[in-house]
């Protein structure tokens, strides 16, 4: 029972990242009709926003300490972050400690800007081209973006810890009446789940309850008619692309403490996110979220020892197995609509 609850928690947490990325992918596909293979790269750039801010906050001035030597035997250069100097060592350390949550503020404008530039500068020119061309160009863009990050940050993962207050784990089991150490879960992963829930709720509320969202929903149903009714839907869709980029970026920022960001992390999520989108149903936002959490939970269950002992290696293929079963039984995915990508 304990391990069951534990894996549900875990699946929800894994699912959070899948759902956020798939949500953004679906926003783009549902509005602009473009299959954006560069979406994983946007997630990765978000994570590197956290890395960048943490480095910016740690920018230091250098002083030579003649009493110590460095690895080459020369006098040691001691680095002190400017924020220590400006706000005092304690406040300075606290600011650096909170780099990842602070990076959210930085990532939102940056990601929206990247989204705008991507859409206006490149993807716009591919709306009338076949899906295969769109896939190729966005995939190429993803490679370019990740090579740029690699050139600037190196190929190694960059540790980007959560604030000290959120390090370590919480014993849920005790809280639920179990023995200690049965259901423990890291604080930051809980933060991630809550954050994802807020973002997903926010996106849905935005689409459901604002006039802007209403127009976008109308445009997702029939882009041409919205135009004939006098609405400049392209402009709104560009904004939606920016929003989708921001969702992916924020998912990346908050993911940085979970696994140290590296240039390749976007690709690791990309294939999975597409499976999520296909299982959920192309173009369906609720489907993307539902499938994200569903696949996260299934993946967690598949990695349980009890399950692996019956079917070894099931954890490696479960996601694809589910995708095959869904596509055979419900070719449009769990919540897909007729006519999407079928012309």
């Amino acid at each position: 029972m304990g391990s069951f609850i534990l894996q549900i928690l875990n699946g929800l947490d894994k699912g959070s990242a899948y759902a956020l990325i798939a949500l953004g992918l679906t926003l783009i596909f549902g509005t602009l009709g473009v299959v954006n293979f560069a979406h994983g790269a946007l997630f990765m750039i978000g994570a590197f926003c956290a890395v960048t801010l943490s480095r910016m906050l740690s920018l230091s001035f250098e002083e030579v300490d003649p009493t110590k030597t460095d690895f080459l035997g020369q006098p040691l250069v001691v680095k002190t972050p400017y924020v220590y100097d400006w706000f005092g060592p304690e406040a300075g350390a606290a600011i650096i400690d909170w780099a990842v949550p602070l990076a959210i503020l930085m990532a939102i404008p940056i990601m929206i800007a990247i989204g705008f530039i991507m859409e206006r500068g490149l993807i716009k020119h591919f709306y009338k081209r076949p899906h295969a061309d769109q896939i190729l160009v966005t995939f190429g863009l993803a490679i370019v973006l990740q090579e740029i990050v690699k050139a600037n940050f190196g190929a190694n993962p960059v540790p980007t810890p959560a604030p000290t207050a959120f390090q370590g784990s919480f014993d849920f089991g005790i809280w639920l009446g179990f023995d200690p150490n049965i259901i423990i879960y890291p604080y930051w992963r809980m933060v991630y789940f809550a954050f994802a829930a807020v973002i997903i709720g926010g996106v849905f509320a935005f689409l459901q309850f604002t006039t802007f969202g209403m127009v976008v929903r109308a445009g997702m149903a029939d882009r041409e008619t919205v135009g004939l009714l006098g609405i400049n839907i392209d402009k709104r869709f560009t904004i939606m692309f920016g929003l989708a980029a921001a969702v992916a970026g924020l998912a990346g920022v908050m993911y940085a403490p979970i696994n140290s960001p590296n240039f390749h992390m976007g690709m690791d999520f990309l294939v999975l996110s597409f499976v999520v989108v296909v299982v959920g149903g192309m173009g369906s936002l609720p489907g993307a979220v539902l499938a994200g959490f569903l696949l996260g939970i299934l993946e967690s269950f598949a990695s349980m020892n009890e399950v692996k002992s019956i079917i070894p290696g099931i954890d490696q293929i479960i996601i694809y197995l589910v995708a095959i079963v869904i596509l055979l039984t419900r070719p449009r995915g769990l919540m897909g609509r007729k006519g999407v990508m079928e012309d």
């Binding site: 391990s3 875990n10 049965i182 696994n259 690791d268």
Partner: peptide, 13 residues
Amino acid sequence: QTDFSSYIAPVLN
């Protein structure tokens, strides 16, 4: 694998 949480989670117990 990139996220090992589901393999780590059962270790303590």
